[in-house]
Write a protein that binds this DNA or RNA. Structure first.
Lengths: 145, 145
DNA sequence: TTTAACATTCATCTGATATGAATGTTTGAA
DNA sequence: TTCAAACATTCATATCAGATGAATGTTAAA
């Protein structure tokens, strides 16, 4: 009952970008270093986020990534639903359950899951990286700006 | 973001027992057959449930298992908390996250998790196996009662 | 044409979860 | 006293989603 690291990393990437001055292009490389994860791995997360429009990537020299839309419009629920492969609390079909038809468990757990997502839905990326300045201070600063 | 099969099976076992006539002793063997899971495996789940008092086990010939208390007093939240090893939505320490101190994500997700459990808490085993008769009909009947 | 970035593909690792064989222990009944 | 049927325990292994990263391709600005 835990989100995958993919989702975790996706949040880290987004928070990183949200903390940067608007329109600054960050690189996958620098983010990988900050969070001590391999470049390839960060890239995969970035790909998914870019595919959903949450991140905007530009290639070529002096390319990089930035948020695809204002942090106020990036909802946390959206991120979770994008990154998590399975969001269903149980699978009554895998070892198929004979009592399935009369069992209320599934419906109850799905409602609970809905409650989870409903809560998360109340927040946007802006709520996570506020104030951005204090996040910036926690990052390993070199040359940046 | 899914409950483990252990939890799933724990529910199946409990629902099975709750559907049986009170005071009837069921065996691990028969439950294993019903749900097509190995005896050893069911045993492990039963052990945990028995340890928490949700199931009462008696050894020896003509031994068996039954609910350890009325199904109305077995709360679903209790079962989940018993069976799930990890109930924390994220681990900010595993690949340690540098922005942790200023990050609101953890708190938000924990609240969401609380919402999940709060919802589940509203139900007991009695809600799952009601009416017990219809569950009984779904089981593979041989000699029983 | 070079360089620095994103993009893609492929291969592999890893650990929680899941599984079950083998064996011990208890208890009631014959 | 012995047997049989049940729970109980221990040990070993399978499995697979999730995680990881090396190698290589593609793009675009300088």
């Amino acid at each position: 009952m835990r989100l995958t690291k993919h989702t975790d990393y996706a949040f880290r990437v987004l928070i990183y970008l949200a903390s940067m001055p608007e329109d600054r292009l960050s690189t996958v490389q620098e983010i990988a270093e900050q969070f001590d994860v391999s470049r390839s791995h960060v890239m995969k997360i970035v790909q998914k986020l870019a595919g959903a429009g949450l991140i905007q990537a530009s290639r070529g020299q002096h390319g990089g990534i930035r948020l695809g839309k204002p942090k106020q419009s990036i909802n946390l629920r959206q991120v979770i639903e994008l990154m998590e492969a399975t969001l269903t609390p149980v699978n009554c079909d895998d070892p198929v359950c004979v009592i399935q038809k009369s069992c209320a468990l599934k419906a109850i757990l799905f409602e609970a899951q809905r409650a989870f997502l409903k809560h998360v839905e109340r927040y946007t990326l802006a709520d996570l990286a506020e104030p951005a300045v204090s996040i910036l201070h926690l990052l390993n600063r070199d040359e940046r700006g």
